[in-house]
């Protein structure tokens, strides 16, 4: 059963997954090139500087790519009013779980591509003795960010159904308005507290606020 769901998930999202994998692979390679200027062989410092510029893009990639990966299969099911999953001899929660894990598995592809891209970029430079490359750690961090974004989007889509877009907009707009109102009313602490809850450890999106570091001491 799971193999079949995984196969349909792959068939529906393979183009998007391939695109995500390509961008993930190219990010460290571009980071290596863009800070190199006219140098033919940029060094460790250039790669570090490049990732300072392009690193946040990995966060956006994890966020928006995962969002589409979570939402797209649901919309295909919704076109047939979920007749197929409801006709299966398994409970709805079991089906949702399998659908979730099938999507989560596909996230391994861009994470793996990022790992290969990291290895490739690191192989282009000579690392000074005290510095270490962390291609696996960076790819793992990307995978975690993508999984969290995927899970949040998945929950939003399966809870809100057709109204997911409106709910998503409200989830962005309402806190923004509350934050703006709190700022105007002089209660800056409120906005800070919400931001800290979401983006500081152990908040749900704390993985996004970590630096995207490939080379470190």
């Amino acid at each position: 059963m799971f193999a079949m769901i995984l196969r349909t998930q792959w068939a529906w999202t393979r183009v998007l997954v391939a695109l995500l994998a390509l961008i993930a692979f190219l990010t460290p390679v571009f980071a290596w090139r863009i800070s190199g200027g006219n140098d033919r062989a940029p060094g460790a410092m250039q790669l570090i500087k490049g990732l300072v510029l392009l690193g946040p893009m990995l966060g956006f990639l994890a966020l928006f790519g995962s969002f589409v990966l979570a939402v797209y299969p649901w919309t295909i099911d919704a076109e047939t009013k979920h007749v197929y999953p409801l006709s299966l001899p398994i409970t709805w929660s079991r089906y949702v779980g399998m659908r979730y894990f099938a999507g989560a598995l596909t996230l391994l592809v861009p994470a793996l591509a990022l790992y290969v891209g990291n290895r490739f970029a690191v192989s282009m430079i000579t690392l000074p003795p005290l510095l270490q490359a962390y291609p696996g750690t960076l790819a793992f961090r990307f995978l975690l960010a993508a999984l969290v974004a995927y899970s949040a989007s998945f929950a939003l889509q399966y809870l809100a159904g057709r109204r997911a877009t409106i709910v998503a907009l409200l989830l962005v707009l309402v806190p923004t308005l509350i934050f703006a109102a709190a700022e105007l009313a002089g209660a800056r602490g409120f906005g800070d507290a919400v931001g800290r809850f979401l983006f500081e450890w152990p908040g749900p999106f704390s993985v996004f606020s970590q630096p995207w570091v490939l080379i470190d001491v």
């Binding site: 949702v96 779980g97 989560a104 975690l144 960010a145 999984l147 159904g161 749900p204």
Partner: peptide
Amino acid sequence: PLAATAAFWCGIFLLAATRRRP
């Protein structure tokens, strides 16, 4: 700790997703 936190929140989101049946 970051991986454990991410796993925890993924679990919470998955649990929430299974709550509503069309």
